[in-house]
């Protein structure tokens, strides 16, 4: 096969991968700090997508500007969830958080279906343009999302390595007892980290709306893919999430092309199973 075709599939994969990476950064931050997976992450993205949609249709707010609403709003939602719900589940059996999040998943999905119906909604804020560059086809909106994913990763990395709070978060995810002994308020760190993770889900939701049809179950594939990316990249590894997301996008693009479009996710699921069996701490994560 021609190298041009390979390159085009690669570009396609990278653009999808950007979406997965964006969806996974918030999840991996939470996973690193608390060793838990919020399987309702995609559902929070879905709620952010609806928020963005209604901000545009009711108040005429540009989807890109609505980030300034969804980011703080979902930060607060996340802080509340952690402070009043997740915190008390952390001491329980390890499955508690997952079951709670499953409840949240079905609650959020059916909440959306009940109030806003199952109909598909489309937000026509941005025209999706395709342009050619060096003989390859690019989609403007998807390319923007890829850059956004990289930008978010870099900003998050700077936050985690340069600020006091960021260092406290990293210390907590490395060793909770030592962090507490060094004077880190672990409980507060967890609230901020969860808030930040959910805020990133909100951000992802706002940014993804020009690319996706909106319906109540739109979040589930994001939850699944973000979960796989987090395990691929290693729980808590921010750059791991970016690389894992891009890798997953590329894998998916190639399997979709060579096997069948229906099977495009199959390689991702098999990779997930192998990772869980062989390296559950991820490709870039640390073994506990």
């Amino acid at each position: 096969m021609s190298s041009e075709l390979t390159a085009q599939i690669l570009v396609q994969g990278l653009m999808i991968g950007g979406i997965y990476a964006l969806a996974a950064t918030g999840l991996t931050l939470i996973a690193g700090v608390m060793n838990i997976i919020n399987i309702a992450h995609g559902e929070l993205m879905m709620l952010a997508m609806y928020t963005t949609y209604f901000l545009y249709t009711i108040f005429g707010v540009d989807p890109l500007l609505s980030v300034f609403v969804t980011l703080p709003l979902f930060f607060v939602i996340g802080c509340f969830l952690q402070r009043f719900c997740i915190e008390r589940l952390l001491t329980g059996p390890p499955m508690s958080v997952i079951i709670f999040a499953a409840g949240l998943l079905f609650f959020a999905q059916n909440f959306a279906a009940f109030w806003w119906t199952q109909d598909f909604k489309v937000l026509r804020g941005y025209a999706t343009l395709t342009f050619d560059f060096m003989g390859l086809k690019f989609t403007t909106t998807r390319l923007a999302i890829l850059f956004a994913a990289i930008l978010v990763t870099v900003l998050l990395y700077i936050f985690l390595s340069k600020t006091r709070m960021g260092r406290a978060i990293r210390a907590t995810s490395q060793n909770i007892e030592s962090a507490a002994l060094m004077g880190v308020n672990v409980k507060r760190v967890r609230v901020i980290a969860f808030g930040l993770g959910v805020a990133l889900a909100g951000l992802a939701g706002s940014l993804l709306i020009p690319v996706y049809y909106l319906y109540p179950a739109v979040g589930t594939p994001f939850s699944v893919m973000a979960l796989i990316v987090v395990f691929l990249g290693g729980m808590g590894s921010v750059f791991g999430a970016l690389i894992g997301g891009l890798a997953l996008g590329i894998i998916e693009a190639f399997t979709g092309f060579y096997l069948a479009l229906e099977l495009k996710d199959i390689a991702a699921f098999i990779a997930f199973i192998i990772i869980l069996l062989v390296r559950p701490w991820g490709l870039f994560g640390r073994k506990e």
Partner: peptide, 10 residues
């Protein structure tokens, strides 16, 4: 009903 179900689980 499903919404209540999810809420009940939480």
């Amino acid at each position: 009903g499903m919404m209540l179900y999810g809420l009940a689980v939480m």
